[in-house]
Write a protein that binds this DNA or RNA. Structure first.
Length: 725
DNA sequence: GAGCACTGC
C-alpha cells in the first residue's frame, strides 16, 4: 500500500477557501517560503538526492526554520502538501546540532508513514536504516544507540511516556499531522506542555540532580487550525511553508442536493462525457453507498455513446479484501477512465495515482461516543457533513499530478457553514485507556491540559469504570492492579480479562480470543453476493456459548491447518522453505471459509506480544483449560461485567447497571438463541442499539462481579467523582 | 436482521 507522508496539505487550490497566501504571510510574521512545481521524487544517486532535497519548497526556508526552533520552545509549522516538511525539518535540525544532547522524535498517526519516512530520510542521509535514522512502531523497531532521528507512531511515544515521563532522551519532539488530532496526539500535546514546563523551571531534575535541557517541540499541521496550536503553546510562532500542489478548480453545486447518490451519478456521467481524460475519485460516506453507486454507474454506462463506454469502476473501503484494494493502483487499460468510489480512507491513508477529478459528497461516517451515567457508553455511527479541512483535503486529491477539478455536491454557502476541523477523537471515544494512562503519568484527568476538553461526564464515566475494574481505589488513586492493567497494549477491561485468566487457568484460550478481538483487520470477508455461502462455510466454527468461543474455534482450526501442513511440506524432497506449503494451505483454507488471512496473522503477532506481557507479569500463558468453556466465559465476565445484559420478557435485553435497552446484533451467532444473560464487546447504535461480539453467561455468575456484590464498586456516586486525586 | 478511518510497552 502506498503510504502517505506529506499528504495532508490543503493544497493551493485556486478557489477562495481558507486564507489567501497573502494573509498567511502575516501569521506572526515569521517566514514565508515560496515553492514551485518541480521534479518528481528521485531515488537515485547521492547527487540526485541532494538535488531533490535542495529543490523542495522548504529548502530556502532552512535557516529561518532552524533559528525559529533554536530561539523558541515551541514552533508551529503550517506546511502544505509536498512542501517536504516532514522529511527535511528533522534533517535541518540534526545538521544544525540539535541532536547533540538528545534524539529528535518525529511522531506520525500511522505506522506505514513512520516506516517509509524513516527509510526516505535514512536514504537522504546516506546511512543504513536503523542507524542515524530509525523508527519505532508497534511490532517493529529499527533503532540503535546511535539513532538521532527517530520516526514513531504517536501511540508509541505515549507508551514511552509511561516509562520515562520526562522524555529524558529527547531534545526535540516533532508532532506531525497534528491537525488529525488523534487521541494519542492530544495526549502527547498536553504531556509535552507539562514536560516543557518541568524541564524549564527545573522542578524536575535528571538522574544526576542537574537541571534538564529544555525540550523543543515542533507541531506540524496542514490545515486551518495552526493558530489554535499556537494559542495552546503560549502563542508560539507559526511558520508557513507553501507546497507543491497543482491548482484545483472547485465547482460547488448551485442548489442544495437532495439525493447525493443521484447527484454523484449525474455528476460523474456529465464529467465523463464532457471532460478530457483523467481518473475520477468519488468520496462517499460508507460501503453501502459505494456498492450502490457502483451498481448504478455500471447500469448507466451501456446507455452512453459506444465510444465512451470504457469505464472501470473500483470500490475502495477499509473492509475490502486487500487484493481488491490493490486494484486501484493499476493503471487502467488505454482509453479507459477509472472511477474510484471511496470512503474517507482515500482522504489520508491511501493515495491513488492518476486522479484528476474529485467528486465530493461532503459527507462522511463518524463514530461518536455517548457516555452513559454509570460509565459504560455507546458508540454511534452517523453520516455527518465533513469539515472545511476535510473538504480541502479531498479537493487536493485532484491536484497531485496535474491541475485538476473538484465537484462539490453542496453549495458554496454550505461549505462556508462547515466547521473548520473535524471533532477531535478525544471527544468522540471511550476514554478508559487514556484516563488510566494519565493516572500512570501522575496527572489529574480533570485538570490535564487538553487542547479540546472531553465532556466531564466522559472523564467521570471512565473514572467510574476504572474504579469498578479496581484500577483506582476509592480515593481515585492508581492501584498496583491499575499499573499492571496499563502495561498491556489493551483497553483496561481486556487487560483485566487477561490477568484474571491466571487464577482461572485458561490464559492460552484468553490470549487467543483477546488477540482476535483486538486485531484491526476484519476477520470475516463478506459482501452481498457471498454472504450466504460464507455463513454456511463458517457454521462449523460456531460455538453454542457465543461469539468469543467461536473466535477461539476459528483460531484453533487455523493453527491446525498451519501445523498439519508444516510436516507434509517439510517432508517434501525439493520444496522451498518448509513453511511455504503450510502457508499456501492456510491461504486456501481461509479462502474456503471466507476468512481474512491477514487478520489471523495479525492476531498471531498480537498474541506473541501479549505472551511477552504475560511473562513480564509472571503469568504462565501456556496454561489451558482445554475444551471447558466455563473458565473462559467467567474470565470475560471479570472484565466485561459493565457490558452485560439480561433478557426481558419481550426478547430484548436490558444492560445491567443502566436501563439501556438493546438487541443482539444480527451478525452474532446468538441472535436467534437469545440466552437469558449475555456479555458483549461493544454497543453500537445504527438502526437500533446493538450489542456486538456476544457470549452467553450463567446468570448466577453475575453475583460475583463488582457490579452486584458490593455497594461501593460500580456505584455511580463513588467519592472520587469530583475528580480529585 | 447489518459493517467510517486509524492505532498501542
Amino acid at each position: 500500500m502506498h503510504s502517505d507522508s506529506e499528504e495532508e496539505g490543503q493544497g493551493s487550490t485556486s478557489n477562495a477557501n481558507g486564507p489567501s497566501p497573502k494573509k498567511k504571510r502575516k501569521i506572526n510574521g515569521v517566514v514565508v517560503v515560496n515553492g514551485a512545481n518541480g521534479r518528481a521524487l528521485s531515488n537515485g544517486t547521492s547527487n540526485d538526492i541532494k538535488l531533490h532535497r535542495t529543490q523542495l519548497p522548504i529548502w530556502t526556508g532552512k535557516a529561518a526554520l532552524v533559528s525559529a526552533v533554536k530561539n523558541n520552545d515551541t514552533v508551529v509549522v503550517l506546511g502544505e502538501t509536498g512542501s517536504g516538511k516532514t522529511t527535511q525539518l528533522p534533517q535541518f535540525l540534526h545538521e544544525a546540532g540539535l541532536t547533540r544532547d538528545g534524539i529528535i522524535a518525529v511522531t506520525q498517526p500511522r505506522r506505514v508513514a513512520a516506516i517509509s519516512l524513516a527509510a526516505r530520510v535514512a536514504l537522504e542521509q546516506g546511512t543504513p536504516l536503523g542507524q542515524l535514522v530509525g523508527y519505532n512502531v508497534r511490532f517493529d523497531e529499527h533503532t540503535t544507540r546511535n539513532t538521532r532521528i527517530k520516526f514513531c507512531t504517536d501511540g508509541m511515544l505515549v507508551r514511552e511516556l509511561l516509562i520515562d515521563s520526562d522524555l529524558d532522551r529527547y531534545s526535540v519532539v516533532v508532532v506531525d499531522e497534528a491537525h488529525e488530532r488523534t487521541l494519542r496526539t492530544d495526549m502527547l500535546l498536553g504531556s509535552l506542555k507539562r514536560i516543557q514546563r518541568e524541564r524549564k523551571t527545573g522542578e524536575k531534575r535528571d538522574r544526576d540532580g542537574k537541571k534538564m535541557k529544555p525540550l523543543k517541540v515542533v507541531v506540524m499541521s496542514a490545515t486551518l487550525d495552526a493558530e489554535r496550536f499556537s494559542a495552546f503553546f503560549n502563542r508560539c510562532p507559526v511558520l508557513y511553508i507553501s507546497g507543491r500542489q497543482h491548482p484545483v478548480q472547485i465547482c460547488h453545486s448551485k442548489t442544495p442536493v437532495e439525493d447525493f447518490q443521484d447527484a454523484a451519478l449525474r455528476t460523474f456521467l456529465q464529467l465523463h462525457l464532457d471532460h478530457p481524460p483523467g481518473d475520477v475519485l468519488v468520496f462517499l460516506p460508507g460501503q453501502d453507498d459505494i456498492e450502490s453507486l457502483a451498481k448504478s454507474i455500471r447500469a448507466y454506462i451501456p446507455q452512453v455513446p459506444p465510444s465512451q463506454q470504457k469505464v472501470l469502476v473500483l470500490p475502495l473501503y477499509g473492509a475490502l479484501p486487500p487484493e481488491q484494494q490493490k486494484k486501484i493502483f493499476d493503471p487502467p487499460p488505454a482509453g479507459t477512465r477509472k472511477v474510484v468510489l471511496a470512503t474517507n480512507i482515500a482522504e489520508t491513508s491511501i493515495t491513488i495515482p492518476g486522479i484528476r477529478y474529485v467528486i465530493d459528497t461532503g459527507l462522511c461516517k463518524e463514530r461518536s461516543y455517548h457516555t452513559r451515567h454509570g460509565g459504560s457508553g455507546l458508540d454511534e455511527l452517523l453520516v455527518k457533513p465533513i469539515s472545511k479541512s476535510s473538504a480541502q483535503q479531498r479537493s487536493g486529491r485532484a491536484g497531485r499530478e496535474a491541475p485538476g477539478t473538484c465537484f462539490r455536491l453542496y453549495t458554496e454557502q454550505s461549505y462556508n457553514q462547515l466547521t473548520n476541523a473535524p471533532t477531535p477523537e478525544i471527544q468522540r471515544c471511550d476514554l478508559n485507556s487514556a484516563i488510566l494512562d494519565l493516572k500512570c503519568l501522575g496527572e489529574d484527568p480533570m485538570e490535564f491540559a487538553y487542547m479540546d476538553r472531553p465532556l466531564d461526564d466522559s472523564i467521570r464515566g471512565s473514572l467510574i469504570t476504572l474504579y469498578a475494574l479496581q484500577a483506582l481505589d476509592s480515593q481515585g488513586r492508581l492501584t498496583r492492579l491499575g499499573r499492571r492493567l496499563a502495561s498491556f497494549p489493551l483497553e483496561p477491561a481486556l487487560s483485566l480479562v487477561v490477568l484474571s485468566s491466571q487464577s482461572r487457568a485458561c490464559t492460552a484460550e484468553i490470549l487467543d480470543i483477546v488477540s482476535l478481538l483486538t486485531c484491526t483487520a476484519k476477520l470475516f470477508i463478506d459482501n452481498a453476493d457471498t454472504r450466504e455461502a460464507a455463513a454456511d462455510a463458517r457454521k462449523k466454527f460456531q460455538h453454542r456459548d457465543g461469539d468469543h468461543l467461536t473466535l477461539l474455534n476459528i483460531f484453533r482450526s487455523f493453527e491446525d491447518v498451519l501445523s498439519s501442513n508444516l510436516s507434509a511440506a517439510s517432508s517434501q524432497a525439493n520444496g522451498g522453505p518448509a513453511h511455504t506449503g503450510s502457508r499456501r494451505a492456510a491461504r486456501e483454507w481461509c479462502k474456503a471459509h471466507f476468512l481474512n488471512e491477514k487478520a489471523l496473522n495479525e492476531a498471531t503477532t498480537i498474541r506473541t506480544q501479549l505472551r511477552g506481557n504475560c511473562e513480564r507479569e509472571k503469568i504462565d500463558w501456556k496454561v489451558s483449560c482445554g475444551d471447558d468453556a466455563e473458565p473462559v466465559l467467567r474470565c470475560l465476565l471479570d472484565g466485561l461485567f459493565r457490558k452485560s445484559a439480561i433478557k426481558a420478557p419481550d426478547g430484548t435485553y436490558r444492560q445491567i447497571g443502566m436501563q439501556q435497552v438493546l438487541k443482539i446484533h444480527p451478525s452474532s451467532s446468538l441472535v436467534d438463541r437469545k440466552p437469558p444473560t449475555i456479555i458483549f464487546d461493544e454497543l453500537l447504535i445504527t438502526s437500533a442499539v446493538y450489542a456486538r461480539g456476544v457470549s452467553a453467561v450463567h446468570s448466577s455468575w453475575l453475583i460475583d462481579t463488582p457490579l452486584l456484590n458490593s455497594n461501593a464498586r460500580g456505584n455511580t456516586t463513588a467519592p472520587y467523582t469530583n475528580g480529585h486525586t
